[in-house]
Design a protein around this nucleic acid. Structure first.
Lengths: 251, 251
DNA sequence: GCCTGGTAGCTGGTCGGACCAGCTCGGCGC
DNA sequence: GCGCCGAGCTGGTCCGACCAGCTACCAGGC
């Protein structure tokens, strides 16, 4: 009684995936209990459980012990994408130059959009972040870099584009983990941090002034200045192209 | 002992994930057989199988029936990211304007990089694609749009940035599925296709001439022209910003 | 009549055993 | 020496059992 084509659990996975994609199952809905899925799909409970583990790993559903209402359908999440991306960078499938180049593109877009769409409240959030960042300099690079990520995340959020935000956040995190070792070796970390604060202030001002092109150019120029020395000639040329594309100058 | 905070299969997942991330397990390596993992981790075979299903859904390993060598460790894949992204767009977690805006950014970057890095062989591939595209016009929009996707995929490949390529491909696919209904309603589909062919020819020429800024600007202007009418005022403004960012003009 | 306490029945988590189909390999018979 | 066949492994599936904890219901005491 073996099915050569598809494995038993795959039927359940496909069915639930389809139902969620079509909106038939919405976040907050409940799947039937494991034992009920056994009857509906005519497969063993172990197979049902394999299906639920797969759906859980995609963050589509969540099973909770002793919940009589059944597995919960979750809202669409970017978690699996983040984890997959981190695995790609961890296994060197994506290199630092690729990450930096993409970050130039994503940060530029985020800054541009934020300059147009930002609200005063979001501007205030950026101010508060910058204040905390200045205070964190004596605390070391760990706390500082978390606030650095938050600064860009706030901008991406203000930009209002889910994809720019998601890809940008993941990319920034990956860049940070890859570069952290190098940074820690650098002699004058405090100078690096102070430079970051100045760059953030410039970007903040451009966004406050609703000067999108400037905010965009600052992102590209800054990233070029930070990372150009960490990549080889060919990748540096691409980065320079990205800076010049929008009228920027390579320092 | 039943609820040790973490579920049994998670131990195996974490262990294997870690081993792959650190390079301890490389693509082509083999995991121990299910029954051996049972002994090593001291858990039941059903739990081991749940772990393997999760690792399989992340495309980190693959189990093959009756393979005495055990589950195969796979090379890093972008498959899970693609599927997660498609789910995000399917559930409307990402809207058409967001997709189009991001596509403007990604296509522009891909065109720019391709103009610098493209080889003559890749140029030839673009030519062949364009020829097939012209021939496909009488065959209807389905075949045409597949070749359209391929054209941009070839450019992204020539650009040489994994992230730009991955994100761009997924985004283009999603845009196409979301817009297809509208396109099919449009009166003169053949005129649309002929316009696409002309735009592709212009991009091709810019890439052939190694004129990155032009290739980039063409991407943004073309996408604005195609989709500006399908989004509301605020999103259209952002799209116009993206065009002007690099010296383009809004038609 | 109302409150309270126990219990039955559900949930998901885990385990162990069983069988199947198909591949590999080694030993046996020729 | 060559070829065949079965033993032993693999993953895929199913079944039954038990546990812990939550809930709802019902009986008993006040």
């Amino acid at each position: 009684m073996t099915l050569p084509q598809t494995r038993a659990f795959q039927k359940v996975v496909d069915h639930v995936e389809q139902a969620i994609a079509t909106g038939e199952l919405a976040p907050g809905d409940r799947l039937p209990s494991e034992r009920e899925l056994v009857e509906r799909f005519g497969i063993a409970r172990s197979s049902v459980r394999e299906a639920l583990r797969v759906l859980e790993s995609m963050e589509l559903v969540r099973s909770q012990p002793r919940d009589p209402r059944g597995p919960l359908v979750l809202p669409a999440s970017t978690g699996p994408i983040r984890r997959s991306l981190q695995m790609l960078t961890a296994t060197q499938a994506v290199s630092l130059p690729e990450l930096v180049q993409f970050r130039m593109v994503a940060d530029a877009a985020a800054n541009l959009m934020a300059a147009t769409r930002r609200t005063d409240a979001q501007l205030l959030g950026l101010e508060r972040n910058m204040a905390r960042m200045r205070e964190s300099i004596p605390l070391g690079y760990g706390a500082f870099s978390r606030l650095d990520l938050e600064f860009h995340e706030l901008i991406a959020e203000a930009g209002g584009n889910t994809l720019v935000r998601l890809y940008g956040n993941v990319t920034r995190e990956s860049v940070l983990t890859l570069i952290q070792r190098t940074i820690l070796d650098a002699g004058d970390r405090e100078a690096l941090m102070r430079r970051s604060v100045r760059h953030h202030a410039a970007v903040y001002q451009a966004i406050a002034d609703r000067d999108g092109p400037l905010a965009s150019r600052l992102a590209r120029e800054t990233l070029y200045a930070y990372y150009a020395d960490h990549v080889d000639e060919a990748d540096r040329a691409i980065m320079a192209d990205l800076v010049r594309e929008c009228g920027g100058t390579v320092s």
